[in-house]
Nucleic acid binder design. Sequence first.
DNA 1: CTGTTAGCGCCTTCAC
DNA 2: GTGAAGGCGCTAACAG
Lengths: 342, 342
Amino acid sequence: MKRRPSTITDIAKALNVSASTVSRALHDSPSISQETKDAVMELAKQLNYQPNMLAVSLLNKRTKTIGVIVPEITSYFFATVISGVQDMVEEAGFKLIICQSNESYEEEQKLIETLSLGRVDGFLISPSSKTTKFDHLEKLRASGTPVVVFDRDCPNFEADKVLVDDYDGAFQAVDYLIKTGCKRIAHISGPQNLTTCQHRKKGYLDALKKNGLEIDELLNSEVEGFTSEDGEEATRKLLDLNLPPDAIFAINDAVAIGAMSVIRERGMKIPDDISIVGFDDEPYSKYFNPSLTSVWQPVYDLGMLSSRILMNHIANDPDDYEYRYELLKPELIIRNSSKPLF
Amino acid sequence: MKRRPSTITDIAKALNVSASTVSRALHDSPSISQETKDAVMELAKQLNYQPNMLAVSLLNKRTKTIGVIVPEITSYFFATVISGVQDMVEEAGFKLIICQSNESYEEEQKLIETLSLGRVDGFLISPSSKTTKFDHLEKLRASGTPVVVFDRDCPNFEADKVLVDDYDGAFQAVDYLIKTGCKRIAHISGPQNLTTCQHRKKGYLDALKKNGLEIDELLNSEVEGFTSEDGEEATRKLLDLNLPPDAIFAINDAVAIGAMSVIRERGMKIPDDISIVGFDDEPYSKYFNPSLTSVWQPVYDLGMLSSRILMNHIANDPDDYEYRYELLKPELIIRNSSKPLF
DNA sequence: CTGTTAGCGCCTTCAC
DNA sequence: GTGAAGGCGCTAACAG
C-alpha cells in the first residue's frame, strides 16, 4: 500500500516536459503557457503531488520552523505561552518544534544541539532552573541563529528578551498585604538562580523595607520545585515557627494552593488568621475556597510578543541588529484569600 | 557574524581527501585508517562541523520526527500525554512537532497537510470535537504514513488506537454515587460527537438503569466546551429545576469545579446537599475545598503507550500490519465532594 | 583504504 | 516558452 510520493520529475516525464517547466508551472511563473500550466496542475492534483519541503529547505536553507524550549510543558504558564506563540507564527507559515528540558541543563543542551542539526530558523528559550552557563546559547549566537529568551532571563547573554516585571508584581503583592494590616509576612521563594525568583524575592524584601517592617530570615522558606507539595512542606515549617507568619506570599499559585491546604488542616482561617497571595493567576485560582489573590501575568501576550520579535529577527537580520528588551507588566488580582483594604 | 555552517566538503577540501572519505570517517567506518579518522575528527571539531539533517533526511526519507496533533495544549490532560510521548520518543532519537487544532476541523486538516509536506515519519492524533469526517486521515493512511489515534476515537477509521475506558470510568462514578444514597443524579455531558463524551454518558445512563433509577432527561445538561465557566452555567440550570439533583457527575474536573462554585454561591453544602464527581483527576483537584472526587486516567501512560506503538509501527511496517487497539483502565478516586460509602 | 559517480527532490541560472 | 546544467549536503554503490 505504501507508495512513493510523486515528484516533480514524475509529472515532467508523464507530460514529456522538463522538470524545470513543471516547477515553474507549479509556481505560476509568467513565462509558462497557460496550456502547460493547466496540464501540470491537473496531473499534479491527480497524482496528489505534494512538494517535498525537505528538498526545498535544503536548497534555500530555511526550514520555516522554530524551536521552542521550555522547562516543562504541563504548567499552565508555559502551555499558555506556547499557545500564544503557536497562534502568532502559524499565520506566517511557520511550524513549531516544542521541547521540554525538564528543568535539566543537560537536556536543554542536548535539545539545542539536536534542533540545530535540523536547521531550525530560530529559537524561543526559557532556560531550566539548573542552567547557569550559557555556552550552548552563545554557540547559537555565533552561528547566527536568532534566539529570543523569554520569562526567565539569561544574565550576560545578549539576545532578544521578553520578560515579566516580577519585581513589580511581588512588590505590589506584599505592599498590598502590608496595607491590609499584615505584620509578619512570609515568602515561599523559588530557586534563586532563576531571575524570576530572585526578582520576586527582591520585590518582597523591598516592600517590607519601604514600609519599615523588619526582615526576619526565618520567614523566608525556599522551595526546590514549584508544586503544591513543595508548598505544603514549606508552609508546615513556617507555621511551626515560634512566631508564625500572618501572611504568606508564595512564589506561584501551585505553591499557594498547597499552603492553603495545610493552613486549613491546622484549623486556621484564611484570611482572618493568615493571608495568602500567589503568583500566575491560573485559571483555577479564582475557584478555590477562598478564592486566591494572585499576581496575573500577560502570559499569552508574552508568547505572541516573543514570537513576533523572533520572526522579525529571522526575516530581517542586519549585521547591526539591536537586541530588543521587553518588560511586561503584571497585575495584582485581589480575591478572598487576603483581607480587603478597608 | 553569520557564517555558513561548515560541511563535509569543506573538511574534504581542507584535507585533500574526498567527501566520501570524510563521511565514512565521521561514521567511524572500519575501512578508514586511524590516521585519516583522527585528522577528520579534529578538523570537524575545529570547524564546529554539524551534519545537516535535512540532507540526510532527504536521502533516506526518514526525518525521525513525529507530528502530534491535539485539540489544545493548555489542558492538563493533553499536556501530560505529550509529556509522556516526549519522554518515550526522545530515547529513540525522535523529535516532536506539536500542534493544536483548537478544536477546529479545518485547522486540523491544515496541520496534517503542512506536517505531511515536512515528511514527518508518523502521526499521533486526538481529533478535534468538530471532526466527523476522516478523509484527511485516510489520505495519510493511503500514503503509508503510520497514524496512532489516542484518547478520542475516530469511528470507522482504521488505525492503531489507544483509548481510555470512559464508559467504565463513568459507570464506576455513578454507581458509587448511587451506593452513597444519591437518587437524582445529574450529568453535565460534553459534545456528543466525541466518543469520550458519548461513552461517559452511556456509562452514566447504564449505571442508573442497572440500579433501577429512573432516567430524567432534565438531569442531563450538555456543555459545548470543557471550562469551569461552562460548568457554572450548566449547574445554574440544574439547580433551577423544580426537582434539583442531589448529585452531579461532570464531564471533567474543570466543569466540576465550576459546578462547586455555583453550589457554594447558593449556600448549599457539598456533599450533604449535593455530591460532585469529576473526571481527569487533575493535580489541583485534591486541593479544592472540599477535595474533588474524580475519575483518574493513566494519562502519562497513555502518551507513552501511544508513542511506543507508533514508533514500533514506523520501525517495522509489513504489508500485513495488524492495527492495535488498547483500552486503558481509569480509576475512581474518592474524596470529600461525595459522601462516604458507610 | 580511498576516490568517483550518482542521486535524494527541487530550484535557479543560462541558454536557445 | 522551454530545456539543460548545476548544486543544496550527504551517502551508497561501484571501482580501484
